[in-house]
Design a protein around this nucleic acid. Structure first.
Length: 213
DNA sequence: TTCACGATTCTA
DNA sequence: AGAATCGTGAAG
């Protein structure tokens, strides 16, 4: 890897200050940002975030609403870390811890669009974790420096972006909160808002290698 | 120790 | 609409 390319990557890593805000502020800002994983062979695995949800201790759907336990401990930790949990005994879900310590707050990464790959390869939290090979071992990873995994700033400059705001899905409590956001132009959304038609294939936006930096 | 239940996905 | 599948927390 070129030295200057490495510098460029470092300058694009989202800092702790980005995450030190309430989840409902971070979640929409994360749309268009990139999740990057460096594999042991030196290759990069990356995708553009196209769907997120915010969760906060102040509302019932949050894992930290009732109690602070060993399972949700990471969500109470420092912002800029990864919170991973297992759901339905089968799928892992990837969250970014936000706001401040001792306050359960985070953003669920629900869908990614990946260059050169099928639209739905990382469309949904379980599939996203599966494609990035992330599991409970990665719980509490720090995302704000260049290790194996980090988040990089928004590089969607080639298209006019529209971020749709709607209610969260797959939950039974606090359903009415409009704390889900997605990129309207992407076909990699797990579920669209009623009345929002999926963009047609030829015109639809999809990341390319030029979106990397 | 037991039991009910998911921040999901795939199949019928 | 229903199944698959298992770690966790609450209850007994």
């Amino acid at each position: 890897m070129q030295k200057n390319k490495l510098k460029l990557i470092e300058s694009n890593i989202l800092p702790i200050s980005f995450f030190s805000r309430p989840a409902e502020q971070v979640a929409p800002d994360l749309i268009g940002c990139k999740l990057v994983r460096k594999l042991s062979n030196g290759d990069f695995l990356w995708g553009v975030i196209v769907e997120t949800e915010a969760y906060s201790q102040s509302e019932e759907a949050c894992h930290g609403y009732f109690h602070r336990t060993s399972r949700n401990e990471t969500l109470f930790g420092e912002p800029g870390h990864l919170y991973v949990y297992l759901t339905y005994g089968i799928y892992h879900c990837i969250n970014v811890v936000t706001d401040r310590s001792n306050w359960a707050n985070g953003v669920l990464l629900r869908a990614l669009a990946m260059p050169g790959e099928h639209e739905r390869i990382a469309s949904g939290p379980g599939l996203l974790a599966k494609r990035f090979e992330l599991n409970l071992c990665h719980d509490n990873c720090q995302l704000t420096q260049e290790n194996d995994l980090w988040l990089a700033s928004n590089s969607l400059t080639s298209i006019n972006t529209t971020v749709v705001r709607t209610t969260r899905i797959g939950i039974t409590k606090a359903k009415e909160l409009p704390w889900r956001w997605y990129l309207k132009e992407s076909r990699s959304i797990s579920k669209r808002k009623r009345g929002d038609r999926c963009p047609p294939k030829p015109q639809a936006w999809h990341p390319t290698s030029s979106d990397y930096l």
